[in-house]
């Protein structure tokens, strides 16, 4: 029986390897390795509207 378990585990490992490989191929194809510096900088650009609404100071109020 342990040989069956081992067989399943090896199959699973193979599946994971194939999945990782495909994922990596996709990443290369979509150009994620073209620019290794930009995304790190881009992440810091806080360009979308703030998620937490800021309290607005209305005129006339203190």
């Amino acid at each position: 029986m342990p040989i069956m378990v081992l067989g399943y585990l090896l199959g699973l490992a193979l599946f994971v390897v194939i999945a990782l490989g495909l994922g990596f191929f996709w990443a290369v194809k979509s150009g994620q390795f073209e620019d290794m510096e930009g995304p790190a900088q881009r992440m810091l650009m806080d360009d979308d509207d703030p998620m937490i609404p800021r309290r607005k100071l209305k005129q006339g109020e203190d």
Partner: peptide, 9 residues
């Protein structure tokens, strides 16, 4: 890159 990835995995 792909060759390298396959070899590494």
């Amino acid at each position: 890159l792909r060759h390298l990835a396959v070899a590494a995995l």
